[in-house]
Design a binder for these strands. Structure first.
Lengths: 187, 187
DNA sequence: CCTTAATTTCAGTAATTATTGAAATTTAGC
DNA sequence: GCTAAATTTCAATAATTACTGAAATTAAGG
């Protein structure tokens, strides 16, 4: 059964969708995918591919490719409607969940490959000590990224409530750290 | 006085530079700029534009544009050599400093504009309560991003040593948080 | 199974972004 | 302030990436 193709988009939502389209290029994603994601976020009901295409004035095939892309980012929830053969899509309700997913995926794509590369280069490091300046830099970078990644992973294990509390504390954590230092007598 | 155009690049460094070129596209930067940055990181001595171009096999004008781009990311240190009219460039020695700069710049380009957009949309919010679902989502997103950004800003104020300690603590902070909660009687 | 709706794939084309060489501008030393 | 070296700008073009419509594939309902 074909639903209406008219998806009501308020001016506010329109701004929001446009913005995500423009920002898309600054992220690794393209305009269309950014707009699709934004549309699904601000639309309460799940949408089918035709509705998405109509709302954003893009072709059906472009929608299909965009959905595949969003799926690869784990940002899609598929919904099946009884008596309708079309697939309906929406994004997770909780923006915190989305943020976590986004951070995790970006880590996988943008940081992990560099960590692997650095590991493999440093592993092959000959005993010759040649180009020690460069190897030293790579080592520093490796350690930094490894620390960041393992910290990120630990944060990912926390419940959203806990994470929020931690974030709100901000550099206040520093004071606590200060305290524990003094107690255990470290610098 | 024209230095040699031959910049020695070890196989290790070559892998490193290639990798940053490829990853460049996943970041918002292009291949060439990624390679230039990587080259300057692993090369001890500052390089001039001709040397960079020769090392990466790119045109002089491309180097010029790339340098401008890197400059806009605050990732360049310019060095003047006595008796040489050419400009020499390198990246900051400390990879932690570079990481901080990178995170700050990415925040400015990728997060701040979205925060502004959300603020302005939410500010215009009419009393009508129309499209409340979308406005609600934007509000959630606004609060999340604001929290993240202010946390990032606070972290930026910490000294590298302090930051490292905090990162190493990881979710261990959670236990301390737990403790303070119990002491002050919160959940 | 067969039919038809729905989705995906893909080759061609459009749009965007990156790169170049030549010309213009800037800069430093005389 | 003149000269020559160094750098930047910019219009042309190369390379890449995005988008489309048509054809192929998949999947649901009888």
């Amino acid at each position: 059964m074909s639903d209406s193709l008219d998806v009501e988009i308020s001016p506010h939502s329109e701004s929001f969708i446009q913005h995500f389209g423009e920002m898309g290029s600054r992220w690794g994603i393209n305009r269309t995918v950014g707009q699709m994601c934004a549309l699904l976020v601000v639309t309460e009901k799940p949408l089918n591919a035709d509705q998405i295409g109509a709302a954003l004035h893009i072709s059906r095939s472009n929608v299909s490719m965009g959905l595949k892309e969003l799926q690869s980012w784990n940002l899609l929830r598929a919904v099946t409607v009884a008596g309708d053969r079309k697939d309906y899509f929406t994004t997770p309700d909780d923006v915190w969940e989305m943020a976590r997913t986004l951070i995790e995926e970006r880590r996988k794509r943008e940081i992990d490959p560099t960590l692997s590369m650095l590991r493999s280069v440093l592993l092959q490091e000959q005993a010759t000590g040649e180009d020690s300046y460069a190897l030293n830099k790579m080592n520093d970078m490796h350690d930094l990224i490894e620390l960041l990644v393992s910290w990120l992973n630990e944060m990912q294990t926390l419940k959203s409530q806990r994470l929020m509390k931690l974030l709100k504390l901000g550099s206040g954590v520093n004071k606590i750290l200060d305290l524990t230092d003094r107690v255990s007598g470290r610098s």
